[in-house]
Design a binder for these strands. Structure first.
Lengths: 212, 212
DNA sequence: CGGTGTGAATTAATTCACAGCA
DNA sequence: TGCTGTGAATTAATTCACACCG
């Protein structure tokens, strides 16, 4: 089943909303309600849901619990997934705090740094290992994805280490393009570029539509 | 001149590379070199550069200094631009540190929080004001864009305040969709979703191409 | 009715491929 | 020859619009 990157992203969003709805004891939701929450069109939502082969009822819409389960079955693999973080500076620590505080099953379970002062300390309930232990810990903790939060000039060697260790997903906060083999998925979060973009569009009084 | 969001993003990237090239005293660059640095095709780079009306030489490629100037003229407005940050928690502070440490002319010049312990302290060389001063400081410091780094449940009211104060660009780190009038540009950085996406594609051994 | 599912149409983004030039 | 600039083709993403259904 081939689903586009954009659709995957939106499915993750819908899942978040569905969890909220479940908490509020809402049992059914229409595509236009989900669309409203996500800032999308109803047709888009229906298309995305179609992509995972779930079917709603034309009269009541989508059953929250069931749709949630379908999306999760689709997104989550069978095995539980470990996430590592490399680079325990300011940014790394706050990413760690941010992600591990959420209820998600995606928790960062191992951190790595080269700074001897950080090694073997526990940071936001996550043990910090020396970087050279990465390949071993990847095996032991079943790490599938790794977050890069090191300075720009160290990002490529770190990425090489990640790839060599067999990890296939990278979330990269360093402002550089990483060269990796094509079976490795890289998502870049470049805060400086994002801010420049916002500033550009803030100046244009704004015909260019966008926002997601 | 109407330029797509994606193109703007890439222009910001090229600018970064051009600055690096300038530091290394490189005077000319070919589209395929820029493409390599950005992980794109050469045709894409040429299209983007076309969009801003700059012309390279078919024999030497693009003149680094000149192209840099053209891109900057295009991206940066005439007036210098202030950026504010709302929410001086862990995440906010590390965003601040990250952005203000770069040489960019886009510096965060004012921070805001409601926590009395943070107010009127200086955080990463940036004064922290009480949130209610936001409209005033926006005027005084010529703020055009604002970064939201508050908890999810406070993001919408904060966005409303931003909009009411006449600011037209928002960089939103809170995991919620913001409702704003359509002349206001919102860029979302949702770290939790980004990680879920990476994890999804890390599992698929990976036919779905992507990465930017 | 007011929903869903979806083929068809549209619009956006990217890539191809080649003329033209020094 | 090896680049740029760009029309044309292609591919991807989104939206339209309507059949169908309880």
């Amino acid at each position: 089943m081939l689903v586009s990157e954009k659709t995957i992203e939106r499915l993750c969003l819908y899942r978040r909303f569905l969890r909220e709805l479940r908490v509020q004891r809402t049992t059914y939701a229409y595509s236009h309600q989900l669309a409203k929450m996500a800032g999308l069109t109803a047709a888009q939502v229906r298309r995305d849901i179609m992509a995972i082969g779930y079917y709603g009822s034309p009269v009541r819409g989508y059953e929250v619990e069931k749709l949630l389960e379908s999306i999760s079955d689709f997104l989550d693999g069978p095995d539980s997934l470990g996430v590592a973080l490399i680079g325990v500076g300011n940014l790394g620590r706050s990413i760690l705090a941010y992600l591990n505080r959420r209820n998600s099953r995606l928790n960062v379970t191992a951190a790595f740094d080269t700074n001897p002062e950080k090694i073997h300390r526990v940071i936001v309930s996550c043990h910090c290992f020396p970087l050279e232990d990465y390949p071993r810990v990847v095996r032991e903790k079943n790490i599938h994805s790794t977050i890069i939060a090191v300075p720009a000039d160290q990002a490529q060697p770190v990425a090489d280490l990640i790839v060599k260790s067999g990890v296939k997903g990278i979330l990269n906060f360093a402002p550089v393009h990483l060269s990796v083999p094509e079976e490795v998925f890289v998502e870049n979060i470049d805060m400086a570029i994002a801010l420049e973009k916002v500033t550009y569009f803030a100046q244009q009084d704004n015909k260019a539509r966008a926002e997601r």
